Simulated assay, not measured.
Amino acid sequence: MTISFSACLAAAALVLLIFLRRYDGDRRRFGNAVLLGLCSLLLLAGSFVALSHLHRPVTRTVAAGVAVGTAVGAMAIAGFLLANGIRMIRTEGGRPANLLSLLAGAAILGTLGLLAAAAQVDSGLLRAVATTVLFLAGYLCFLFACFVGYAALYQQVAVRRPVDFVVVLGAGLTDGSAVPPLLASRLDRALALYRHQRARGRSPDLLVSGGKGSDEQVPEAEAMADYLRRRGVPDSHLVQECASTSTEENLKFSRELMERLRPGSSCVIVTNDFHAFRAAVLARRAGVRGEAAGSPTAAYYWPSATLREFAAVLATYPLTNLGAGGLVCAAGVWAGWHG
């Protein structure tokens, strides 16, 4: 079966229309990211088909260049992730969440090694395993590209509409009671949004959300409120939610508090940039009326944090990803045995 350029273009246009309609309805959907990625993939496929029709030898050269570039790029990314993982451990400690860059880099190198071995050894089983791993890696890489690309697009959404609350999601405290730089970045962004709203005649409250961890002396919300109070926010504009222990609880308990204080209220949710899109996805699922805004994060922290957020988003849709992953693995086994 030959796929035409016009068919790819028509499919891309249809997917784009669906994306635009869903994006206009609610920006906070991971499905939007997948649709935008699929549209881009169809356009790339269509371009390649058009090139093959115009000049087949050039197409083979381009395909070979893409294959080599992908392999070299994968090795470069693996090296970067390994180096970043080592820095994360040295800077932030050896907690499991800080190992993600290191593990991702090792996984990429392992996949490349498995593919090289399958190309050298005449074994149907090894070929099937390698092809399955390759297909699954491709599926995850596609979703990760969708996640990163759409999260960057989502961050460009300016918070202009009036809101009743500026909600700040908590993070761990330093020495049990002090606001660390990561959390201070969120609070500073929230304070800027709060002042922006007040400068335009609105009167939002700052709602700080975060409970007391086992290694903390005070609830995160209390430390956050003190930080904002020292920067001129009056107590009458500060609301504390001191019971939550996760992002899901941050949003659930904050919604309940906002509904009690101002029924039907809207908000903007402030967190770090790597966390903003997942916070928006969870806010939608929790019934919170509001978009998420991100504050800057140290560059070395971003890769590991983004991988963590991506894994958490995948876990938010377990049945979808298990089903799709199973189909991808089945396709890989079939292609490996019959290739």
Rank of each mutant, 00 (worst) to 15 (best):
L38H: 01
S214C: 01
R189L: 12
V179K: 14
L206C: 06
Y300T: 00
A330H: 05
V288G: 08
G326Q: 08
A152Y: 05
M224T: 03
L36Q: 01
A315N: 09
S254G: 03
T247W: 10
P263G: 05
E216Y: 08
L35F: 09
F274T: 00
G172P: 01
A324P: 12
H53Q: 12
P204C: 06
F5K: 03
G294T: 06
S236M: 07
R289L: 14
Q217E: 05
R200E: 02
Q120K: 12
A118H: 11
C39R: 02
A67Q: 05
R200H: 14
A299K: 12
W337G: 10
R29D: 00
I77Q: 10
A151Q: 07
A192R: 15
A117I: 05
C39N: 06
L81P: 02
L136Y: 14
R95I: 00
A97H: 11
T59Y: 09
S101C: 15
P318D: 02
G170R: 11
E256L: 12
N98D: 01
S203R: 15
S266M: 02
L109V: 07
F277Y: 11
R308V: 01
R189E: 12
T131C: 15
V62E: 06
G25E: 13
W302R: 13
L41K: 02
S101N: 07
D215G: 05
H338K: 14
A280T: 01
E222L: 11
A311G: 13
L114W: 08
L183M: 09
R200V: 02
A243F: 11
Q217N: 05
I86G: 02
G79N: 06
V68W: 15
G176C: 15
D235A: 13
P219D: 00
T2F: 15
N272W: 07
V179D: 11
A199H: 08
Q156K: 15
A199N: 09
G326R: 06
F253L: 15
H53E: 13
L36C: 00
L36H: 00
V268T: 05
L125K: 11
